[in-house]
């Protein structure tokens, strides 16, 4: 398969509208099981507070996965992503309630490369915090 976005129809500076992803405690329990990362700071409030955190925090890779989903949903084909990197700049605190936390992801076309590739700059925030920095994906368009 190939991306459904056309290289010729993409311009530098073009914005990809924000999408909100909700994360509740149950999502972190599922992610711990699926990824094999059972660090207690991601599910045990007592432990998280003992090591100086405000509450249970999401796995960084859970947040990165939401940014990845944002890119693959935009591109139309997960296989079109050729490079994907982030820095974890702040934590996503996930309270033990029905609302959980919200990770808001948006993007902008930063650069058009040779060979039909584009660089997408990503922004991810939760509350007032930018939870990813230097987040970018290179996507192969057609």
């Amino acid at each position: 398969m190939a991306a459904t976005v056309k290289y010729d129809q993409v311009e530098v500076g073009q914005e990809i509208p924000a999408v909100d992803y909700v994360v509740r405690r149950v999502n972190l329990v599922m992610y711990a099981g699926a990824s094999g990362d059972f660090n207690q700071i991601h599910w045990n409030e007592r432990f998280a507070k003992m090591v100086g955190l405000p509450d249970v925090i999401a796995h960084g890779m859970y947040t990165m996965a939401q940014a990845g989903r944002f890119v693959t949903d935009w591109a139309g084909d997960p296989g079109a992503v050729v490079d994907f990197g982030v820095r974890f700049s702040s934590m996503v605190v996930v309270p033990d309630d029905d609302q959980g936390a919200t990770i808001s992801v948006s993007g902008v076309v930063e650069e058009k490369l040779e060979g039909g590739r584009v660089v997408i700059g990503l922004t991810a925030s939760s509350g007032d915090a930018q939870v990813l920095s230097k987040a970018r994906a290179v996507v192969q368009l057609v």
């Binding site: 890779m61 296989g79 992503v81 490079d83 990197g85 974890f88």
Partner: peptide, 16 residues
């Protein structure tokens, strides 16, 4: 290990 957090992550893909 008790003091470890994830700092950065990057993937370069040849194929999925």
């Amino acid at each position: 290990f008790a003091m470890v957090v994830h700092g950065e992550q990057r993937f370069e893909y040849v194929r999925p």
